[in-house]
């Protein structure tokens, strides 16, 4: 075993200060991702800073926004009465993730920061993987391509981001509040993840030592409806092959403000702005959406092994729209 220091802190500034002098340190939240990767030898931190005592567990709603502390557990958020009532899409996306046991342990911040991956990422270290060891090559692109992303990829890495919650949050135009040494900033979740071209080992724009403090979701117009649809190989406890979060406002018999994010197809939750625009004003009975849905991922560059994800994405969006609009 590789030895590491362990420390539990209760103040954000303390955590950030320790991390500043431990460049190869990691924050430990629920540990459901980090510890697995440590056991596999993928992550080898020399310092674990346990942040579970930081005061980031709130779930609060005011007239402008919903704020969720980064250390709130997935199950707490999914079960929170105000989330169920005001943001059922969030509850759906969380309940579609992992298992009840994992959701009890896993934090919201950790969920957004779980490593983007393909099956090779967790292989023994001799297996080439640019995301694990930049410059070593990508095994997946000429190997098992089934779970890889189809858009936003590069020859460097084609792994898809695995979070369900992030997909729903991106459809809801959520932001993350970050705190670093002496600075705080708020970033749209849509801008939080980055493509793998230059630094495939960096999934996000989070700076070393920065903490996620909370997630901020704008309030929704009361006529807004949404749905999360997820397709996976078994009925529960597996990552999405493709998922879709759909948010729209019902305006008479038409849909407005359509927002669609896809999971499982890109290194980040993938918005479909052109499709969203094309759907603006179409009927809630979904008649006449076929043309717009045809263009979904028209710019994708699938590999032979994951070609099916493109047509699957169209089907999943269609189903999510049906369910959101009440037309299924």
């Amino acid at each position: 075993m590789r030895p590491f220091h362990y420390e539990r802190v209760s103040e954000p500034v303390k955590a950030i200060a320790i991390r500043a002098v431990a460049p190869n340190g990691r924050y430990l939240a629920g540990g459901t991702d980090l510890l697995t990767l440590m056991k596999d030898g993928v992550e080898c931190p020399d310092h674990l800073i346990d942040i579970n005592d930081l005061p980031f567990r709130h779930i609060e709603l005011d007239s402008d926004e919903l704020r969720i502390g980064a250390l709130a557990r997935l199950s707490d958020v999914a079960d929170a009465e105000l989330v169920r009532r005001e943001y059922p899409l969030l509850t759906q996306s969380i309940e579609a993730a992992a298992s009840a046991q994992v959701r009890n342990a896993a934090s919201i911040g950790g969920n957004l920061l779980q490593r983007t991956r393909c099956p090779y990422f967790r292989s023994e270290t001799v297996v080439p993987c640019n995301k694990r060891t930049p410059g070593s090559g990508c095994s997946a692109i000429r190997g098992d391509q089934r779970t890889l992303a189809v858009v936003g990829t590069s020859a460097v890495c084609s792994a898809a981001h695995p979070s369900d919650l992030a997909v729903a949050l991106v459809a809801l135009d959520a932001h993350v509040r970050l705190e670093g040494a002496g600075s705080t900033r708020t970033v749209a979740l849509r801008q939080f993840y980055q493509t793998p071209d230059t630094a495939p080992d960096q999934d996000t724009i989070l700076r070393p030592g920065e903490l996620i403090v909370e997630i901020v979701v704008p309030r929704l117009d009361p006529r807004t409806v949404g749905h999360y649809a997820k397709v996976r190989d078994r009925a529960s406890f597996s990552f999405a092959l493709v998922s879709a979060a759909v948010v729209l406002r019902r305006d008479g018999d038409q849909m407005r403000n359509v927002r669609i994010a896809l999971g499982g197809v890109a290194p980040m939750p993938w918005r479909l702005p052109a499709v969203e625009r094309a759907l603006e004003g179409t009927g809630l009975d979904l008649r006449g959406v076929a043309g717009a849905l045809e263009t979904i991922l028209a710019d994708a560059r699938p590999l032979p092994g994951n070609q099916f994800k493109v047509s699957l994405a169209r089907a999943v969006v269609h189903r999510a729209l049906q369910l959101a609009a009440g037309a299924a």
Binding site: D40, P119, Y120, R122, S123, E124, V127, S139, R142, G143, D144, S238, F239
Partner: peptide, 13 residues
């Protein structure tokens, strides 16, 4: 993975 001659996922995920 026949190019590598090994199983792709040696885990239950």
């Amino acid at each position: 993975d026949h190019a590598l001659g090994r199983y792709v996922s040696k885990n239950l995920t």
